[in-house]
Structure formats: C-alpha cells, structure tokens
Amino acid sequence: MRVQLAAQPIETPAHRRAPSALVQDLAVVFVLWRRDLLRFLRQPSRIVGALGQPIIFWGVIGSGMAASFKMPGSSVGYLEYFFPGVILMVVVFASIFATVSVIEDRHAGFLLPVLVAPGSRGALVLGRCLGAATVALLQAALFVLLAPWAGFSLARVDWPLLVASLSLISLSLTALGFAIAWWLDNLQAYHAIQMTLLLPLWIVSGAMFPASNRSPAFQALLRYNPIGYAVGAAREALYGGALPPALASSVPAGAGASLALLAAFTLACLGAAVAVCVRKR
C-alpha cells in the first residue's frame, strides 16, 4: 500500500477552514479557565471553606501569639502582622487544592477530549493554571475583605500591587503544582510533596513572624523564597505602599523588585509545566 500524494494541496472549502492556531489556543485557555470557575461557584461548600479556614487560623493562632508578639519600636499588633500572612496561606492552599483537579481530571478522563482537540499543550497548561489561580484569588479576595478587623483601611490599600502580587504567586504555584501533578499522576504523592515543599516555605516567608536579623540562615531562606516576596508585596500593599518603619526589614525586597522576581518565577514555573506536559502524556 502506497501513501498517495496530491500534486498540490487541495483547497479546503471556506466554511470548513479551521480557525488559526492562536484562536484555537485562546479558545482552549478560555474554556478551561471558565470551567474551573463554574465548578468553584457551583460548590458552596468550597466557598464557605475558603473563608472559614483562614478566619479560624487567623483568629486562633493570631490571638494565641498576640500576647508574646512584640515588634521592637512599634505598635504593630500580631493580628495586624499576621493578616497578610494568612492571605498568602489562602493562596498557597487554594493553589495546591485547585491543582489536585489536574490529577482527578486525568483519571476521570476529562482531559482526553482536551488533548485531542486542536489546541496546544501550552494552551492546556495556561488554561488550567489561570483557572486554578483565579479560584485561588477569589478565595483570597473573600478573606481580604476582613482587612478592617485587622486594622487596615480598605480605602488605603494599594489594590493594583495587592492583585498583582497575589496573581503572580497563585499563577506560579498552580503552574508548579501542575508540573508536579502531571509528573507524578498520583494524588497521595502530590499532596505529600506539596505539603513538605510549600507549607515550610510559607512558614519561613515572614508570614507568621518576621525574619530575625541575627539569623543569617533564616535571612537566606527568605531571600530565595518566592512566597516571601509575595508576603512582602502584599504587606506593603495593605499599608498603601508605605510600610511602617518597624516592618521595613521584614520584607525581602521593595514592591517593584518583588513583583519582577515573582514574574520571573511565574514564567519559569509555567515553562516547567509546559515542558512536563509536552513530554509526558
């Protein structure tokens, strides 16, 4: 049997001509993003959980630590200090759990139709990550609305900085989660890795307590910790872009540098996720 070849390409009738690659990719990104959102909004338990857990965390740990916490030379209370940290906790956990659905989808078969559709693997990764990141942001947004109880004024918040830093960290963590999830394809292993990787990173990010100048190891951990930059930027945003002097040393970098580093980290994570997704089916 020979493969017969046409002398010249056959003209495809106009009404059957496929949309361009870009249009197809954007379609896939949009579909997957919208699907994550639909599924989130359809499960009230997830919305309640998204708000309940951080409130308990913030209230219980926050008041327990409040008595022993004292920022030298300032009146910043612990509930106030801890608040941006808890926002980041919401984002970290939401990113982990949102990406779990990558494994679920693979096992439930939902990803098969996406893989045989004309969109690229890159579009699949971006769609899933944007969807998961958006869900994480929505959960964080619910908690941010409680800022006045922590002593912040919603009117003073630097919203573009807050949204930018939270968007970047959630997008990068979901991309990282995607890469790990796609690689492992195993729910238990995924949780184990994410918990041993991300939870300690969150704890030493300056979210729970400021980095001490006396511990160079801790300073180093903070410098190489993407969550640290996100906590720092979020903290700065809640103070309207101007940190109280006592907190200046608790952030690893200024807002601009933090955003730039987070953006670079996000691109690296997305690149890793696409690479894993292309190589492994």
Partner: peptide, 14 residues
C-alpha cells in the same frame, strides 16, 4: 485534529 471527532472508550464527560 480539528477535523476529527473522538469518542473514547472510557468516560470522559465532566
């Protein structure tokens, strides 16, 4: 791919 319709053996609906 854009000209194919695919029915999988395994369940693949959301």
């Amino acid at each position: 791919r854009s000209r194919l319709g695919v029915v999988f053996q395994a369940q693949s609906l959301d």
